[in-house]
Design a protein around this nucleic acid. Structure first.
Lengths: 158, 158
DNA sequence: AGACGACAGTTTATATATGAACTATCTCTA
DNA sequence: TAGAGATAGTTCATATATAAACTGTCGTCT
């Protein structure tokens, strides 16, 4: 749908720049709402599934909350609550670091591993279905464009 | 920066589809963080400025909270708190609808109008600076690609 | 050895967001 | 016209997110 209609704007957007920006933000927001609905089928949120995937990728070394916050690109104070909820649900545990008592090592439980495995394939299938509305060349163009925007932001006070 | 490095992934992303999706979500998230930092210079959040712009566009007819929630594409329960905070800051007021007491008409105060006017130009300048890292043809390609993705989502249970 | 600084995690206050249940008001229809 | 259903807004429980202030632990440096 055209953005103008979707955002109920009275007039067309004055600048291509603003239109491109709103397109991105609006589309990303819709994608996240869709993924949240998908993961709610399994009693998870999108963020929680993301954490399970990250923990799976690092299951050999383990991850501290600090490192996890760097992977998620959120603050460490946010991670406290995220892990609280996943722990309450039984998907992860906080384990003591063998030599440094400042660290919590966050570890997937068997239950967490099983849930992640059960969801993963279905998730990637949904991703493929959505993104295949674009040709490969278009996807690559989007990836390059996004990278340039992020580089701008990174050099301007992110 | 390459997404793989930014997200601290051990291996390159297996599929272009997933990479394109994460590119979008990650870039949009960074853009929102940047805009939040910009608006905090004026004591606002990005969402609050967006509301002031929408109210300005509709200052002749006025907007109910319900209509506002449709413009913002959020739930009406969310709008309650957003307007509470803007009202507490003195930028908007809730006024009684002349004939239907169920409605709150949300109206910009003089103070809200002035603040919006003071920020607007500077905001669009920042938008231009960021988006001009892309050529016009690239922006248009992004706009079209985002539209196709939103159309997919709209037809698949959004 | 003791002090200081760095680092990990927590807490608190605040903002945004949803869905479900509720109140008040309005409208339509039997 | 009385009751039923629709509509607008609020409240509550929950999840995500930040910044700032705090605690506990570790290392380093004198």
């Amino acid at each position: 749908m055209k953005l103008q209609k979707e955002l109920r704007l009275k007039q067309p957007l004055a600048s291509v720049n603003h239109e491109a920006l709103l397109s991105l933000v609006r589309t990303s927001s819709l994608m996240q709402k869709l993924s949240d609905r998908f993961f709610s089928l399994f009693g998870l949120t999108d963020v929680q599934f993301n954490i399970l995937m990250i923990l799976k990728e690092h299951r050999t070394e383990g991850l501290s909350q600090q490192k996890l916050s760097e992977h998620l690109i959120v603050t460490k104070s946010n991670v406290v609550g995220l892990i609280d909820r996943l722990e309450r649900s039984g998907y992860v545990t906080r384990e003591a670091h063998p030599s440094d008592r400042r660290f919590n090592q966050i570890v997937l439980t068997r239950k967490g591993e099983k849930l992640e495995a059960r969801i993963e394939n279905r998730y990637f299938k949904e991703v493929d279905k959505m993104m295949n509305v674009l040709a490969t060349s278009e996807k690559k163009a989007v990836i390059r464009a996004m990278e340039r925007i992020r580089d701008y932001i990174g050099n301007n006070g992110a």
